[in-house]
Amino acid sequence: MNDLDQLKDLDPARGREPSAMEWTRSEAFIERVMAGPAPRSHARRWLTAGAVAVAAGAVAAVAVPALVPGVAEKAVASWTAAPTARTGDQVLPQARACAAGDVGGVTSANAADVLLAEQRGDATLLIMKKAGVIVECLLVDEDQAASMGLIDADAVIAPPAGTVNLETMSSLGDGDGQWSNIVGLVGPQVTAVEVKLGNGTVVQASVKAGWWAAWWPGPEGGEVDTLTVTVHAGDRTTSHLPSELP
């Protein structure tokens, strides 16, 4: 018997099985939960280069080309915690590159399609409309994009005033090229959103046209609640774990 086997004797839940009453209560609880708001219907994640289209509806997430090796490292190395806001006109080449990708269907872009655009070092992050779908793109050079479908444009419902929701967060890559993103909708009166990571880094998110978004180097977007989201609305400031956000 090794040391770990010996330890099993100390297990406070050894042999513990839920009673019939506990099963019944818990089953009744999940039925009540399911009677409430529906779960998010799309698993949205960045996909790597070469992924075959897995379209199962307009919002399938397919990224071709994704950030190729070396490009993610370049984006990470030049990253800044505070973004520089960009207009649709300023990022038109990147918007066109995003529009030409498969995610959300190939379209051609104009400046008005860009809902949110920000620059952090070498990387441009876009949230834009593509044929009825809202997509997110991260580009380092105009032809090096990672993109993700977010939501059907007609499904966008603004959160209540002063609040935000979380549409998705995720991470991609590993090592020096690993990065995370977070995206959601903002209600009226939200003036700023910050993401505080477990290591103390505070990332200033971009807020524009009903959306908030940020990306940063590191794995937190793929983890459970290792960051907090702080929402500023007038003189009111609230902080939330991702799992607490609607």
Binding site: S26, F29, I30, V33, M34, G36, P37, P39, R40, S41, H42, A43, R44, S243, P246
Partner: peptide, 9 residues
């Protein structure tokens, strides 16, 4: 379980 339902996908 409530969190799991909201994030089922």
């Amino acid at each position: 379980f409530m969190t799991a339902w909201r994030r089922l996908a």
